[in-house]
Design a protein around this nucleic acid. Structure first.
Lengths: 217, 217
DNA sequence: TAAATAATACCGAACGTTCGGTCTGTTTGT
DNA sequence: ACAAACAGACCGAACGTTCGGTATTATTTA
């Protein structure tokens, strides 16, 4: 296995991390995906890792530090490089977005080793939300990510308008927002429909298609 | 002041609730809007209410019971009666939806007495999410609410298709989802842009208009 | 209508447990 | 031999909850 996450785990700042440290991160990560920050206890972390308190505090200065690193890891995983996206058509752009999203999902599932995709996603979303609620620094990162995405969408939509792929009276910013709102919205819906059926990608795909079909020429 | 919430507070099941009990609910509700379940302590609740531990446990069997009642209260507040919505046009329907949403916001703010709309909303969302994560019963309620909303949107969209208000090749279910995804999505966006500008209603209004303008005849 | 009784409202010290974190000592690798 | 890696007993603070008790109010009795 050669997961993208390994890169972030072992080299968060370009330099390699200690093996045990990575092991603690990877192991306790699963705990934070199951419950909130306060609910995950040091006792659990120590038990799950099979190490001692002393070992833990040898590598981490606090529980909070561990949590923050895990969240940063998740942010890194979710980061998208739009410069590598196709810029010939809006259609290809959003298809690539769908592909990328699906891949991220699979990767997260492989990492966790769970087969309950929606429960995992629920907790994943929860942990990110909790992080932003607790530490404003993550809120800033999230905003930056959104701005990047928004710009990328605006660019391709503008191009599609110019070259006649789509035709709409709406502003490109608003159309971009619509795509992005659909991303978040369908995700939320997916989470809350966990006991129903379908997966996130299907929800999102349908939403994208609905938008696209109503603006294409 | 004659807030809708008072109704739920004093008569959750048709019968009146004890005054002090309501006072405890109303007071500690503000605490749960500031931090997660685990982070709100009994000490804080007791201090904020000015009552004693004994008094609290005279009215509530546990902290969890209190939390659940607060969440139920929020669910009750957010519940929308679509049968009272205009059914003559999709345009009027979504305008009414916007009006209703704005009103709910104002009400929540009056209840809390806060002037920081976005922080409040953030926490509001968080508490609901936490509740659904912690107690599956709330997830079921949320799903029911969504199904109701989905049906209402489908109905009005179908009508608008038939009478020629809108014209689209998309299925009515997909268009309905698009409106609903925008609702959730713009809310998420609003939350994460808390330090920027604008309010939720503006986000949502723009999204609705964008959809509508691209499907209207 | 006053005294007696019952029911409710409320108090705060104390309980057992668990929390995140520290400290001292031992093992391991070089 | 010496530092890094690890073990786990231990710490004080904080946690939710309990409990014995006292005011206050409502109801019954004489």
């Amino acid at each position: 296995m050669n997961l993208k996450i390994d890169l972030y785990l072992y080299r968060p700042n370009g330099r390699f991390m200690n093996k045990t440290r990575v092991y603690i991160l990877q192991t306790s990560l699963l705990l934070f995906l199951q419950k909130s920050y306060k609910e995950v206890t040091m006792k659990e972390i120590v038990e799950k890792t099979g190490l001692s308190k002393g070992a833990f505090y040898h590598y981490f200065s606090s529980k909070e530090e561990l949590f923050k690193e895990i969240v940063m890891l998740f942010f890194s995983m979710g980061n998208i490089d739009y410069s590598k996206f196709p810029n010939d058509s809006l259609y290809n752009f959003y298809q690539q977005y769908l592909t990328h999203t699906t891949a991220s999902f699979i990767q997260l599932n492989e990492l966790v080793g769970s087969n309950d995709e929606s429960t995992l996603s629920f907790n994943f979303f929860f942990i990110m939300f909790e992080a932003m609620n607790r530490f404003p620094e993550f809120l800033a990162i999230e905003q930056e990510d959104y701005d990047q995405a928004h710009m990328a969408w605006c660019e391709i939509i503008d191009r599609a308008m110019v070259n006649g792929e789509i035709k709409t009276e709406s502003k490109k910013e608003d159309v971009a927002d619509l795509f992005l709102f659909s991303t978040d919205g369908s995700f939320i819906r997916f989470l809350n429909n966990k006991h129903y059926s379908g997966n996130y990608s299907d929800y999102l795909k349908t939403a994208f298609e609905t938008i696209y079909n109503n603006i294409k020429t």
